[in-house]
């Protein structure tokens, strides 16, 4: 199974990295594990949110019905609305991929899923004030505005390519 082999590869990388790091510098390795643990707890509510939400939505709406409902909205308007949702939401990308995978398996259009992931990661409405403060208002607005357009185009092209 392809899905399992990717997970195995990542786990293998982590284990090899961890062993190598342990031999190079134990203190730094401990520090790295603390960082990992801390980010896990920071992500925990988002993880629970996504798991419960997927259960709830797929439980109440069989995948076929759900994708039919969404795919009726998969034109350019659909891409735009999905892009907006992705830009506003603040879900860690690592958690968004399983969500996107579930959506893809339920038959949602590739363009919608690609747009969602791309705006989700590329544009940070939450981090925008900080970006303005550090790099200037014009820079932050221009970069995020262009990124939003680019994300929509990426989603649209993904739908054509795949």
């Amino acid at each position: 199974m392809k899905v399992v082999s990717t997970a195995l590869l990542i786990n293998l990388l982590a284990i090899v990295g961890l062993i190598a790091a342990w031999f190079v510098n134990r203190d730094k390795t401990r520090q790295a594990l603390t960082v990992a643990l801390r980010s896990f707890f920071k992500m925990l509510p988002s993880i629970l949110m996504v798991v419960v939400l997927i259960g709830l939505v797929l439980g109440l709406m069989p995948p076929q019905k759900f994708s039919a409902w969404l795919n009726e909205r998969s034109g350019l308007t659909g891409i735009f609305v999905t892009g907006l949702i992705g830009a506003i939401l603040h879900i860690p990308a690592i958690i968004a991929f399983p969500l996107a995978g579930t959506l893809l398996k339920s038959g949602i259009a590739v363009s919608i899923i690609a747009t969602f992931i791309t705006t989700l990661t590329m544009i940070g409405v939450v981090t925008l004030p900080l970006e303005m403060k550090e790099l200037g208002r014009r820079f932050a607005l221009l970069r995020n505005g262009l990124s939003f357009i680019a994300a929509l185009v990426i989603g649209w092209l993904m739908g054509i390519i795949l």
């Binding site: 990542i10 982590a14 990295g17 790091a21 790295a32 960082v35 990992a36 980010s39 896990f40």
Partner: peptide, 9 residues
Amino acid sequence: PAVLVLMGL
């Protein structure tokens, strides 16, 4: 867990 460990390292 593996991804978080890699990121931490």
